[in-house]
Amino acid sequence: MIETVFTSQTLMGLISDTKSFESITNDYFQILDLDKNGMLSPSELRQGLNRVVAVESEVASGEETDNVYKAIFERFGENLVPEKFRDLLAEVLTAMARAFGKSPVIMVVHHNGLIMKAVQHETEQGK
């Protein structure tokens, strides 16, 4: 875990760079696709999504977490192909960006998670 500072523009900047975003999400997809069948099952998604972007929380109940995954599966289907997985991650980042607004955010994130990838992308772009 690492502490970092970012803004909504950091998150949206990664999404808008479609080539970079596709590459990053494809890398995550390959890691999470444990059976290498080209689809993420509900089990694979539950096992790995929290490493990519925080979905679960120590303060959330099991029922709340179950409801998050239920909503994901209803929206994107039971078995996610890479494109649907990318859409899911884009929606998560967009929702976070909207919630944060224009204010800088200080957050402890996974050192190889999606938010940190967005911070690194912004740094590489020289912004």
Rank of each mutant, 00 (worst) to 15 (best):
V55K: 00
R51A: 13
P82H: 07
S8E: 05
A118I: 08
E3P: 02
K84P: 06
V81P: 00
R86I: 06
M39L: 15
E74W: 01
L11A: 05
H110P: 00
T10W: 03
A97V: 07
E124V: 09
I31L: 15
R51E: 09
A71W: 04
K102C: 04
F21W: 06
L114H: 00
A99P: 00
T18I: 14
A118K: 03
L89D: 01
V53C: 06
A97C: 06
S23E: 14
T7Q: 09
D35I: 08
I115G: 00
S61F: 09
P82D: 07
L32P: 00
S20H: 09
E122K: 11
R98G: 12
E3D: 11
Y69A: 05
L80N: 03
N50P: 03
E91I: 14
A90M: 10
L114K: 01
R86K: 14
S20W: 10
G62R: 04
E56K: 11
L80S: 02
Q47A: 15
S23G: 00
V81A: 10
V5D: 08
I72D: 01
F6T: 03
G126N: 07
E91Q: 14
H110Q: 13
I31C: 04
Y28F: 15
M12R: 14
F85E: 05
S16T: 11
G62N: 08
T4G: 01
D87E: 15
N26K: 14
L32D: 01
M12N: 09
S103F: 11
G113I: 12
L34E: 13
F21R: 03
